[in-house]
């Protein structure tokens, strides 16, 4: 296949705003009140992606490991910011352990994929490391939110069961083992489901992007397989570390639940 990319020019982008107008008309017709969100969302999409485009161009040209790692850290920090918005729990400080375990586990998986599986040299080659790490952070962010939400809500709703076990001599890990399993399962289920559906129900974004940019579909699918499998691993590793560390903060040193019902 001959690589041939049809460039999207400014007027074509402007034409695409017609799609937003269509969505806006739906909102007006059905009185959904989504007009403002649509406007802000569209402006943010343009702004964020253009900024990211320029940043990536700069990082690809400079090619230093520190800049790549800084960008990776910023991606994890942005994910933490979004997780903070999605997880409503405020009784337990969970952001620092979440940030630490996401940084560690996703850096490990990203390095394994770029340096060992793909074999990029050096391992931090920005064209490989940044998009792959970005997909890991982006996908796992949702998984970590689901898992933390599940952990906190189950510790609250199943408080009597947890305390029953504590009163019979269980330590916090034993008292909340079922709840931990549920939280990790909540994180892993979407990525396992997507393993079942990929290629049948959906063509993933990365593969689609590669094919649009002229890559042989048989190469694109191999990258996609690597991505799908790395997402399962990163989700499992991240959820296990995050829930393990955050769970400790849900109990006092006297082995009682630190989570309280709102006053």
């Amino acid at each position: 296949m001959t690589p041939h990319i049809i460039e999207i020019g400014p007027w074509q982008l402007v034409m695409c705003l017609g799609f937003v107008l269509l969505a806006g008309a739906t909102s007006v017709y059905h009185r959904l009140g989504l007009g403002r969100d649509l406007l802000v969302g569209t402006v943010r999409t343009f702004a964020q992606l253009f900024i990211m485009g320029y940043v990536l161009t700069f990082v690809f040209e400079v090619r230093t490991v520190w800049l790549v790692l800084l960008m990776f850290t910023c991606m994890v920090a942005a994910a933490i910011h979004i997780i903070r918005g999605r997880v409503k729990e405020r009784g337990v400080p969970f952001l620092v352990p979440t940030f630490g375990s996401m940084l560690l586990s996703y850096a490990l998986v990203s390095w394994l994929v770029t340096g060992v599986v793909v074999g990029a040299r050096p391992w931090w080659t920005p064209q490989y490391f940044i998009p792959l790490a970005g997909m890991i952070v982006g996908n796992s962010m949702t998984a970590i939110s689901l898992s933390l939400d599940r952990l906190f809500s189950d510790l609250r709703s199943r408080r009597a069961e947890v305390e029953m076990r504590l009163c019979l001599g269980a330590d916090p890990a034993e008292a909340s083992a079922d709840i931990m399993r549920g939280a990790i399962r909540a994180a892993m289920t979407p990525s396992i489901n997507s393993l079942m559906a990929v290629g049948l129900v959906s063509l993933p974004g990365m593969m689609t992007g590669q094919i649009l940019s002229g890559t042989d579909p048989l190469i694109a699918i191999r990258y996609q397989i690597v991505v799908m499998l790395m997402l399962v691993a990163s989700t499992a590793l991240g959820a296990m570390l995050v829930t393990g560390l955050v769970r400790r903060r849900c109990f006092t040193k006297g082995h009682s639940l630190a989570l309280r019902q709102p006053a």
Binding site: A160, E161, E163, M164, R165, C167, L168, G169, A170, D171, E174
Partner: peptide, 25 residues
């Protein structure tokens, strides 16, 4: 002994022997 009895799903035996599954016991 809590006011509302709390049992785990399973047999009465599993419930009665639950404390013996914990490390401290």
């Amino acid at each position: 002994v809590q006011q509302m009895p709390t049992l785990i799903p399973g047999t009465v035996r599993e419930n009665l022997l639950l404390p013996f599954s914990f490390k401290a016991n």
